[in-house]
């Protein structure tokens, strides 16, 4: 193996890493009213984002009671539902976000 190619490859790797680290996360959390479940979900997802995605995420919390038409457009059936709009692919998480491991895997922040 040529030393050049090794260098190139490591460069690419670093690039990808930095890219991934720079990637913006666009998240939306749909909740149904201020039930304990909703509040739990909000607290949990906020903590996760602050820990793992600090500075490169946007989180929108939407109450489907307020905007019921969104529920149809986004194909929401369960509450709470977290939708990862970006980066692709689209992912949905349902539940009160207590299972941090699953969320991290789903958000591609930790290898499965």
């Amino acid at each position: 193996m040529k030393p050049e190619s090794i260098k190139e490859q490591s460069m690419k790797y670093k690039e990808t890493l930095s890219k991934a680290a720079d990637e913006k996360y666009c998240l939306r959390l749909y909740v149904a009213g201020s039930t304990p479940k909703s509040l739990r979900a909000i607290t949990n997802i906020k903590r996760i984002c602050e820990t793992h995605l600090k500075g490169r995420y946007t989180l929108e919390v939407i109450d489907i009671y307020q905007q019921p038409s969104l529920a149809k457009g986004e194909q929401i059936i369960a509450a709470p539902t977290l939708i990862k709009k970006l980066p692709v692919p689209l992912r949905k998480f349902i539940g009160d976000m207590t299972n941090v491991d699953r969320i991290l895997i789903g958000l591609d922040l930790r290898p499965a």
């Binding site: 149904a32 689209l90 349902i94 009160d96 976000m97 207590t98 699953r102």
Partner: peptide, 13 residues
């Protein structure tokens, strides 16, 4: 596409 991450209900529906 769906990942279960805890307690939920079908309020969306």
């Amino acid at each position: 596409e769906i990942e279960e991450t805890g307690e939920y209900d079908l309020e969306g529906l």
